[in-house]
Design a protein around this nucleic acid. Sequence first.
DNA 1: CGTACGTTTGATCTTTCTCAATAATGGTGG
DNA 2: CCACCATTATTGAGAAAGATCAAACGTACG
Lengths: 228, 228
Amino acid sequence: MLPADEQAIFNLPHVVRTIEAGTYILREADFPEMCGVLVSGFAYRQKITGEGSRQILAINIPGEAVDFQNLFLDVADHRVQMLTRGEVAFVPRTAMVALCKSSDSVMHAVVTKVLAESSIFREWITNVGRRDARSRAAHLLCELAVRLTAHGLAEEYGFQLPMTQELLADALGLTSVHVNRMLKSLEADGYITRTKRHVRFPDWERMRSIADFNERYLHLDDRRATAG
Amino acid sequence: MLPADEQAIFNLPHVVRTIEAGTYILREADFPEMCGVLVSGFAYRQKITGEGSRQILAINIPGEAVDFQNLFLDVADHRVQMLTRGEVAFVPRTAMVALCKSSDSVMHAVVTKVLAESSIFREWITNVGRRDARSRAAHLLCELAVRLTAHGLAEEYGFQLPMTQELLADALGLTSVHVNRMLKSLEADGYITRTKRHVRFPDWERMRSIADFNERYLHLDDRRATAG
DNA sequence: CGTACGTTTGATCTTTCTCAATAATGGTGG
DNA sequence: CCACCATTATTGAGAAAGATCAAACGTACG
């Protein structure tokens, strides 16, 4: 996103609110009136199945807009909830849509963000569908590390995990017990180091390999299409 | 999508080609030069993990555009392959992007399609991550039935399954052996009826319930946002 | 009519879940 | 600062879902 576009969005009418961990920003079946942008703190997207189990669909990190996925749809198909306490800037949806229509550049930026998140959804399907528990957990750790680093929120090869093992489990389609075992196993084999919730990768290439992680799907520096 | 928008896309320069089952329309790591629209036949999106197993990410049915997901990104992060023989209309990507920029209405339609497919990705994460094998298989059958019906490609409560059990398995994160057992189980319990690859639902509500299927995520008739 | 591909079935093995208990951690009020 | 409570992390044992391996059966099609 170009600085000018960020500024344009920032210039829209908005309110910034501090929101506690666990609070919903968007509920399923809501007609979303507001478009939220995470100023600080983490959020996550989730769905609950009829059986009552939860699947986490995405982790949103500070700086990300959480409602672009619903901007042009009527009914929210999932919920967005704060993972940690944080500040959210709410822009009226109509104002956001109007800005998109008036500025090619903003529209382009919004669509690009949406497509990049879409690509992450695809990778998650693959992760949950086809990787074994250990690689799957490792893959998520890699993704978070790379995305946080790209936003300047992680130091070299290490980061503060913003979630419990229970949350990790719901993101990975596993149980928390099994996530615990996989983390221990990754640690025992020297792939990661843990201090409380801080995770480090002593050997990034080795970790990357066991996680079957290739950051291409994050589209972190796709630029060419911008010219198109 | 409004008829006028469809017409506008149709008026772009394009070539229609008949493509055999199994042929790639888009390769991973390609810079997509063309934007394909399925005139007839089915396609699917897939990824291959480092271990060599395949995950199918989406089934595209006749009438759907398969490359909107890449329209504004530089590098394809997955592959699109023909599931059956069919005709694909290829529009130069630059022409498609230019049309989007010149017509709010087309851009809106494209973004809506992208968001709706994104929503399907989220449901698939949930399906693979949190539903047991039988419900998971049932859910996919329901989704295909509803989408095909919405496009006028299925009769009441029944449709022709365009894929082998092997393909189903790769879409569901299961093995084909287990998919076979789940289909048999669904059949034995009266949820479905099969004649070759034709599937019927004797009691749609009962099927819907065991599949934990709610079509909201398909966003088939979201209209309100169009006005926004 | 034989070959290739897809489906079905059985037997066994592995991964992951479930249940249950214990230990560690963080935050809170006194 | 300390005791207490709630949450989170860890560990073990047994159960279950799904994978793997192997083979037989069908069916379409050249």
